[in-house]
Lab assay of single mutants.
Amino acid sequence: GAYRMKIYDRDELRGQMSELTDDCISVQDRFHLTEIHSLNVLEGSWILYEMPNYRGRQYLLRPGEYRRFLDWGAPNAKVGSLRRVMD
Protein backbone atom coordinates (compact mmCIF):
# COMPACT_ATOMS: atom_id res chain seq x y z
CA GLY A 1 0.00 0.00 0.00
CA ALA A 2 0.88 3.67 -0.16
CA TYR A 3 2.07 5.78 2.75
CA ARG A 4 1.85 9.55 2.99
CA MET A 5 1.85 12.01 5.88
CA LYS A 6 2.20 15.77 6.23
CA ILE A 7 3.83 17.17 9.36
CA TYR A 8 3.62 20.75 10.64
CA ASP A 9 5.67 22.80 13.09
CA ARG A 10 2.55 24.57 14.41
CA ASP A 11 -0.82 23.33 15.63
CA GLU A 12 -4.01 23.25 13.55
CA LEU A 13 -2.08 22.07 10.44
CA ARG A 14 -0.29 25.42 10.13
CA GLY A 15 3.26 26.63 9.78
CA GLN A 16 6.06 24.90 7.91
CA MET A 17 4.81 21.71 6.24
CA SER A 18 6.93 18.70 5.31
CA GLU A 19 5.79 15.50 3.61
CA LEU A 20 6.82 11.90 4.31
CA THR A 21 6.28 8.81 2.20
CA ASP A 22 8.84 6.54 3.89
CA ASP A 23 10.42 5.83 7.28
CA CYS A 24 12.35 8.62 8.97
CA ILE A 25 14.99 7.54 11.50
CA SER A 26 15.66 11.15 12.56
CA VAL A 27 13.11 13.93 12.14
CA GLN A 28 15.75 16.42 13.28
CA ASP A 29 18.31 15.37 10.67
CA ARG A 30 15.86 15.25 7.77
CA PHE A 31 13.50 18.12 8.56
CA HIS A 32 15.44 20.17 11.15
CA LEU A 33 12.53 19.74 13.58
CA THR A 34 12.51 18.47 17.16
CA GLU A 35 8.80 19.11 17.60
CA ILE A 36 5.75 18.36 15.46
CA HIS A 37 2.64 20.22 16.57
CA SER A 38 0.12 18.77 14.10
CA LEU A 39 0.00 16.25 11.30
CA ASN A 40 -2.24 14.80 8.63
CA VAL A 41 -1.96 11.10 7.80
CA LEU A 42 -3.18 10.81 4.22
CA GLU A 43 -2.33 7.17 3.50
CA GLY A 44 -1.28 4.19 5.57
CA SER A 45 -0.72 3.83 9.30
CA TRP A 46 2.43 5.08 11.02
CA ILE A 47 4.15 4.89 14.39
CA LEU A 48 5.46 8.13 15.86
CA TYR A 49 8.40 7.75 18.25
CA GLU A 50 9.43 10.28 20.86
CA MET A 51 13.14 9.73 20.13
CA PRO A 52 15.31 9.11 17.04
CA ASN A 53 16.16 5.56 15.94
CA TYR A 54 12.59 4.39 16.70
CA ARG A 55 13.05 4.66 20.48
CA GLY A 56 11.07 6.02 23.40
CA ARG A 57 7.32 6.34 23.69
CA GLN A 58 5.40 5.35 20.59
CA TYR A 59 2.03 6.40 19.24
CA LEU A 60 -0.03 4.76 16.50
CA LEU A 61 -1.21 7.16 13.80
CA ARG A 62 -4.09 6.02 11.61
CA PRO A 63 -5.26 8.08 8.62
CA GLY A 64 -6.80 11.40 9.64
CA GLU A 65 -6.03 14.86 10.97
CA TYR A 66 -4.22 15.39 14.26
CA ARG A 67 -4.54 19.08 15.07
CA ARG A 68 -2.37 19.06 18.21
CA PHE A 69 -0.10 16.55 19.95
CA LEU A 70 -2.87 15.71 22.43
CA ASP A 71 -4.78 14.21 19.49
CA TRP A 72 -2.24 11.38 19.20
CA GLY A 73 -2.04 11.00 22.98
CA ALA A 74 1.38 12.55 23.61
CA PRO A 75 2.22 14.76 26.62
CA ASN A 76 4.24 17.12 24.42
CA ALA A 77 5.17 17.80 20.79
CA LYS A 78 8.56 16.06 20.90
CA VAL A 79 9.07 13.72 17.95
CA GLY A 80 12.27 11.85 17.08
CA SER A 81 11.35 9.37 14.34
CA LEU A 82 8.46 8.05 12.26
CA ARG A 83 7.96 4.59 10.79
CA ARG A 84 5.37 3.06 8.49
CA VAL A 85 3.25 0.18 9.79
CA MET A 86 3.76 -2.48 7.15
CA ASP A 87 0.95 -4.93 6.45
Rank of each mutant, 00 (worst) to 15 (best):
E35F: 11
L48D: 00
R14M: 07
E50G: 03
K78P: 03
S81T: 02
R67E: 06
P75N: 05
D87E: 12
D9W: 09
G15F: 09
R55A: 10
Q16D: 11
P75W: 05
K78G: 06
P63Q: 09
D9F: 12
L70Q: 12
G73A: 05
L82A: 07
M86V: 09
C24G: 01
E19Q: 14
Q28Y: 10
L20G: 03
N40R: 11
Y49L: 00
V27Q: 00
S26W: 14
L61R: 03
P63I: 05
A2K: 13
V85R: 05
D9A: 06
D9N: 07
N53A: 06
F31E: 15
H32Y: 10
E19V: 04
L33W: 08
L33R: 08
D9K: 15
G56Y: 00
V27H: 03
D71F: 11
P52I: 03
M86N: 15
H37C: 05
N53K: 12
R67D: 15
P75K: 12
S45H: 14
Y66D: 01
S26C: 09
F31V: 14
W46Q: 00
I47Y: 09
R10N: 11
M51T: 05
Q58D: 13
F69G: 14
D71S: 05
A77T: 05
V85D: 14
T34C: 14
L61I: 09
H37E: 10
G64T: 03
Y54T: 01
R68C: 12
I25H: 06
N53W: 07
L60T: 06
M5I: 14
N76Y: 04
E43T: 09
S18F: 09
K6G: 15
V85Q: 05
K6F: 10
R30Q: 11
F31A: 15
N76Q: 04
G44N: 02
D87V: 04
D29H: 15
Q28L: 06
D23I: 01
L70V: 13
V85L: 06
N40Y: 12
Y49E: 01
I7H: 01
C24A: 15
W46Y: 11
I47F: 12
D11S: 09
Y3E: 15
K78L: 08
S38W: 00
E12G: 05
N76F: 15
K6Y: 04
I47S: 02
E12K: 14
R4A: 06
Y49V: 02
E35C: 06
E19M: 04
V27E: 01
W72T: 01
D9C: 12
P63F: 03
R67C: 07
S26N: 06
R30K: 12
E35T: 11
D87P: 15
H37M: 06
A2L: 11
Y66C: 11
Q58S: 08
T34A: 07
L70H: 14
R62W: 04
M86I: 15
M17Y: 10
V79T: 06
V27W: 14
P52C: 06
D22R: 05
I36N: 01
I36A: 08
L20T: 11
Q28I: 06
G1L: 11
D11E: 15
S81Q: 01
V41I: 11
R84A: 09
R10M: 08
Y59T: 04
K78A: 07
V85W: 10
P75R: 04
A74W: 15
D22L: 08
D71I: 05
R4G: 12
L48I: 03
M51N: 11
S81G: 02
E19S: 12
Y66Q: 02
S38G: 04
L39T: 04
E50F: 01
R83T: 06
W72V: 02
D9V: 09
Y8I: 01
L42P: 10
G44M: 01
D23Q: 03
T21N: 09
E12A: 06
G73Y: 03
R67N: 15
V41Q: 00
R14F: 13
E43F: 08
A74P: 02
V79Q: 00
V27Y: 10
L39C: 08
D11T: 11
D11Y: 05
P52R: 05
M86S: 14
P75S: 09
V79A: 07
D11K: 15
E50K: 02
N53C: 04
N53P: 00
Y59S: 03
L13Q: 15
Q58N: 06
D87Q: 14
Q16R: 08
R4C: 14
T34V: 04
G56M: 00
S45Y: 06
R55L: 07
R68Y: 13
L61V: 11
V85S: 13
E50Q: 04
S38Y: 02
H32I: 12
P52Q: 06
D9M: 14
H37K: 10
V79R: 00
L70D: 11
N40L: 10
T21E: 08
H32W: 03
S45Q: 10
V85A: 10
L20H: 05
I7L: 13
H37A: 08
M5N: 03
W46H: 00
Y66N: 04
Y3S: 13
N40T: 09
R84P: 15
E50N: 04
N76P: 02
L20E: 13
R57M: 04
S81R: 00
Y3H: 07
D71Q: 04
G15T: 08
G80S: 03
W72L: 02
Q28S: 05
L13S: 15
Y66K: 08
Y49P: 01
I7F: 15
L39E: 00
